[in-house]
Design a protein around this nucleic acid. Sequence first.
RNA 1: GCGCUCGUAGCUCAGCUGGAUAGAGCACCGGAUUUCUAAUCCGUAGGUCGCAGGUUCGAAUCCUGCCGAGCGCGCCA
Length: 583
Amino acid sequence: MNIFKDFQKNIEGIILSLSESGKFPKGMDLGNITAEAPRDASHGDIATNAAMVLVKQASMKPRDIAELIAASLSEIDSVDSVEIAGPGFINIRLNDTFIQNQVSSIIEQGIDYGRSDYGKGEKVNVEYVSVNPTGPLHVGHCRGAVFGDALATLLDHVGYDVTKEYYINDAGGQIDVLARSTYIRYLEALGEKIDEIPEGLYPGKYLIPVGQALAEKYGDIWKGKDESDWLYTIRAFATNAMMDLIREDLETLGIRHEIFFSELTLHENGGIEKALKQLNEKGLIYTGVLEPPKGKLPDDWEERPQTLFKSTLFGDDVDRALKKSDGSWTYFAADVAYHSDKVDRGFNKMIDVWGADHGGYVKRVQSAVNALSDGKAELDVRLCQMVKLLRSGDPAKMSKRSGNFVTLRDIVEEVGKDVVRFIMLTRKNDASLDFDFAKVTEQSKDNPVFYVQYGHARVYSVLNKAAGAFSGMDVSDSALMNADLSLLTDESELQLIKTMANWPRIVESAAIAHEPHRISYYLYDLASEFHTLWSKGNDRLDLRFIIDDNEALTLSRLAMIKAFSKIIAAGLNILGVKPVEEM
RNA sequence: GCGCUCGUAGCUCAGCUGGAUAGAGCACCGGAUUUCUAAUCCGUAGGUCGCAGGUUCGAAUCCUGCCGAGCGCGCCA
């Protein structure tokens, strides 16, 4: 149920039949025609640009085109009036009955209102978090985690078959460092005195229990032994322990990935060779020498021939190395294989969520996806900017070097999962975001989480009150759906319903744009309209939701605010936030 | 030097992939008598959409060139 889509189809139908009857040429391209809510309410409820878009194809004046379309539009039952305005906009005003009836349809669909089949079940892979398994998640990871999760839910809402995935970087040098760091803790657990963690290793206390677990499981068999004896086993052990830790961290935010994909398996099971073979068969791999990078030249720069991927053919700046000088694969090579694996698993739509500092990596991976799928698969990389942590306006201390950084768990414990999730989605992903511990927990209009939740809670407050005012009043969904909605006649009531009817469009456009923050903004705006209406009851007693001597009117208004609460709940649900019924 | 992201009210930001007179919130100023919770609401003021061109019925949005900010720039991940 999306009234704008319905009207778009109506308009297309009208144009087609006008073509049939010879008023318009046949076979016109209707692709750019839109039906949307005008910014200015005086322009009606739905506006279409059809007349202007068709000017060239029909070789007619926009006004003449508009006249013909408008005539047919005005015959539709739900249409109250049609006007032609400006350069050729057709402005449609809906009749009150149609608008009022949206309320029962919203209540009926409840939290599913706004779902659609836009994606038609197409498979989409959303990969997010994918943090190196070398320690607990910190605040910097938090944003991408919430963003990816909300985006996945959003895509699910518009009918995509979404897989949520985490890529475990368990093959690189940092895992060796993790293993060595764990080995120190292992020795410590066996009773050796460890004064200081050596430079270059991970000093965090979170490895202490891992060392203890190792000592318990294996005893002292590795004490005094060469690294080559224990490195492989401890790597795997520590990686698993870290992934358990990370999964627990994610759980505190309500995030559950369906697939955890190990980079190491690509190295061990020939996945990299397989993917590179494909590229090789397409003639996209060669041995060559790269120019030194501009800007800062690495100290140890030397020219050497490398195995390279011709990413420049796909828009990258330079061709990219697949092998290191010691003969092992680069991180990029594994990433090529990983994305190749996704394509092989049937994903033609992939979204990767990364930190903005990886921006320079985007083109090469997109190039690889392009090459591997012959242009059939698309990869969108969403970069998340930094989160600035503040306490009442002052920067909150965050020092990663000391191993004493603010962890994801710290922040969730302090302000709660719902606040974290909502606030992380109150900015576009590529804009940096201020997270002020004082502000996000404040109970004021300043704080969008509170403001939206408060709107939802207020509805339940009214429903409870009504049950007292009218003894035995049935305020269940099914009862409210049958309220006499024609009693909702005030302009601000109708306006609230119209804004509610916008919801399915918001969901769809947010999903298409891969921008979950649009949901937060919409919810804020919707809540604002509700609070406004509520407050009107202060001045005008006849606009209150509960009218003591008028049960029918009360019921209709309760239906309206129940519908409102359903949309707030639906929206919060997409963001992964639990709507509250009381504050 | 190159690439990516961005530049909108004093501040923080929206702007529905090209629509009509560019919108919120904060801050400032001025208001709302016991209430379905004043945890909210109403009003005033505030703009060369970084600058200059271009594309077309129409540009904050798309293209080009400058100016400015952040990030990145062999084999690290």
